[in-house]
Design a binder for these strands. Structure first.
Lengths: 108, 108
DNA sequence: AAATTATTTCTACTTTGTAGAAATTATCAT
DNA sequence: ATGATAATTTCTACAAAGTAGAAATAATTT
């Protein structure tokens, strides 16, 4: 099995952590907040779609809500395979980083 | 600044951690050992080259050694910019993972 | 001088990342 | 009802990164 890319890791983790309304806008907010960087719309949906074709996430459309108009939301959730992939990066991250000192204090 | 990709992270970390002879073969061994996966030759050198053009690593050729023949080794080292990039992923990784439970025990 | 060896260099192709315009579908205002 | 407005997704095109391995290089050994 291949390792998740950074974006895939971020998105799956978002799906793991977001409790309310895991749809495009909230997912994008989550990754923007956590990374402190701008994420275009495509940078969210395109990788999510690809994760779906790999079977790492599943999605479904909500019915219309009594809120403001617009297209209906697509909710995403992580699958068992997605979780397994996340387990693998967690393990690799430990291997890689657990023995590392805090680099913010290190000089070259 | 953009985040390092997974491969870039692995390679820079390798350069941080490898103490002896940080050249292609040893770098490849390091990442293979740590990831437990096969890494083609190109999967090492091409990203290293690209890291060099970004200024994250520097390299130089060794003179001929009194060992067995062959082309001379190219030694790599991380630069200050590379280290800074590594600091950033370290920080983001903490933000992302420090509050996560051990997923190996978690069911969906 | 030919064979062998260690290593790097190069190239072509696949996959992933990224940006944003266009399309869709709902509600609101008149 | 109809048009304006709003929220969201879908789509597309291009840029960047990942990947595999054959070919080139340059040293030593026979």
């Amino acid at each position: 099995m291949k390792f998740l890319s950074r974006a895939e890791e971020l998105l799956l983790l978002a799906l793991w952590k977001i409790t309310e309304e895991p749809y495009g806008v909230n997912i994008r907010k989550f990754v923007s907040d956590i990374t402190g960087k701008y994420w275009s719309i495509g940078a969210i949906y395109v990788p999510l779609d690809r994760l779906e074709s790999k079977g790492y996430v599943q999605s479904y459309l909500s019915g219309p809500t009594p809120e403001r108009g617009g297209k209906s939301k697509r909710y995403y959730k992580i699958t068992e395979d997605g979780l397994e992939a996340l387990r693998e990066v967690q393990k690799m991250n430990s291997t890689l980083w657990d023995d590392m000192p805090d680099l913010s204090t290190k000089k070259l």
